[in-house]
């Protein structure tokens, strides 16, 4: 297993963004998800592997239980899983406000 594939990361990242920043338009959301996937592929090897495993498990959970339960899971302070969601959120949030500083708190463009 090498880099976490964007096929398993992107849907989770989109779901989390859709919940945290519901007003973010689709074009921007795609750009953020692209950025997050690119960043995950440059993590140190062991982190990349760890993230790939967790991303795979989380994606499976999302497919079987749906987005609402995924979001509930993402808000629980679980070891490792919690770190994964935190990583997705920090990369996304940093990118959104660095790229479009006047974004509203719900993700809408100013």
């Amino acid at each position: 297993m090498r880099a976490p594939s964007s096929a398993v990361v992107a849907p989770t990242c989109e779901a989390v963004l859709g919940h945290d920043l519901p007003g973010l338009d689709e074009y921007r959301r795609c750009e953020v998800v692209d950025f997050v996937c690119r960043r995950l592929s440059t993590l140190p090897v062991h982190m990349r592997w760890g993230v790939a495993v967790i991303a795979f498990v989380v994606d499976g959970w999302r497919r079987t239980t749906g987005t609402n339960r995924l979001i509930a899971l993402s808000n629980r302070p679980l070891p490792l899983l919690g770190e994964y969601f935190r990583l997705l959120r920090s990369l996304s949030i940093a990118y959104v406000w660095e790229t479009w500083p006047d974004t509203r708190p719900d993700g809408r463009a100013a």
Binding site: D20, S90, I93, V96, E98
Partner: peptide, 18 residues
């Protein structure tokens, strides 16, 4: 910069994001 301000608010995003 704004990205880092947002990051500093992230841990309690629901309450701090405004």
């Amino acid at each position: 910069h704004p990205g880092l301000v947002a990051l500093a608010l992230l841990d309690q995003w629901e309450d701090f994001r405004d």
